[in-house]
Computed example of a mutant assay.
Amino acid sequence: MKQFVLLVMLLGTGLFAAPTLAQDKPSYAYIGIEPEIVTNYLGTSAIKLGYVRVMIEVMVSDVDQLELVEHHMPLLRSTAIEIFGRQPEEKVKSLTGREDIRRAILAAFQDLMSKETGAPVIKEIIFTKYLHQS
């Protein structure tokens, strides 16, 4: 009887509980590229330039990787500015073009982080602000 009571108490406290799946799931974290990016893009003619103002949030799979991303933030910021600077006006203004730009920046970020750290580190990027003017 004592063993039964002890077993019930142990089960009630969770000591015999199965390991939780929360440990297996990644602990996603976000870091913003600050200050927001304000840069020019190619306008309709060689004389005319437009500008875009974008806030980018970077998602990593693990909170421990935030420090790596923060360390390389100047390189990531410069890369995003460079990519926006090469875009034609039609691409900047359209929704499908915006998604193409987002994917290009994500691929460039992952490539840079792979070269610098040995792993892509960055899982996703999100534009939280996207304003353009020609």
Rank of each mutant, 00 (worst) to 15 (best):
M1L: 09
M1N: 03
M1D: 05
F4N: 01
V5M: 06
V5P: 02
L6W: 12
L7H: 13
L7W: 11
V8M: 07
M9Q: 05
L10D: 08
L10P: 02
L11Q: 03
G12F: 03
T13V: 13
T13K: 02
G14L: 00
G14M: 07
L15H: 09
L15D: 00
L15T: 01
A17N: 05
A17K: 01
A17M: 06
A17E: 00
A17G: 09
A18Y: 06
P19M: 05
L21F: 14
L21S: 13
A22P: 03
A22Y: 02
K25M: 13
P26Q: 06
S27C: 09
S27T: 11
Y28M: 08
Y28A: 03
A29M: 08
I31Y: 12
I31E: 04
G32P: 04
I33E: 00
E34I: 08
I37R: 05
I37A: 03
V38I: 14
T39F: 01
T39Y: 04
N40S: 13
Y41C: 00
Y41M: 04
L42C: 10
L42P: 00
G43V: 01
G43L: 06
S45K: 10
A46M: 11
I47G: 04
K48N: 13
G50L: 05
G50A: 06
Y51D: 01
Y51H: 11
Y51A: 02
M55V: 13
I56G: 08
E57M: 13
M59L: 15
V60L: 10
D62V: 07
D62S: 15
D62M: 09
V63F: 13
V63G: 04
D64E: 15
D64H: 15
D64P: 00
Q65Y: 15
E67C: 07
L68V: 08
L68N: 05
E70H: 15
E70S: 15
E70I: 03
H71L: 12
H72K: 13
L76F: 11
L76W: 04
L76I: 04
S78I: 01
S78W: 06
I81L: 03
I81T: 02
E82L: 15
F84Y: 03
G85Q: 06
G85M: 06
G85W: 12
G85T: 07
R86H: 12
R86T: 09
Q87D: 06
Q87Y: 07
P88N: 10
P88Y: 13
P88L: 07
E89D: 12
E90P: 02
V92A: 02
K93H: 09
S94Q: 09
R98A: 11
R98G: 03
E99V: 07
I101L: 11
I101V: 11
R102K: 15
R102W: 10
R103N: 12
R103F: 10
R103M: 14
I105K: 07
I105P: 11
I105L: 01
I105H: 00
L106W: 09
L106Y: 14
A107C: 02
A107Q: 13
F109Q: 08
Q110A: 12
D111V: 05
L112R: 14
M113G: 04
M113Y: 05
M113Q: 03
E116M: 09
T117W: 13
T117N: 05
V121D: 08
V121N: 07
V121M: 14
I122D: 08
I122L: 01
I122Y: 06
E124L: 03
E124Q: 15
I125W: 04
I125T: 01
I126D: 10
F127Q: 01
T128Q: 01
K129C: 02
L131K: 07
H132T: 11
H132R: 04
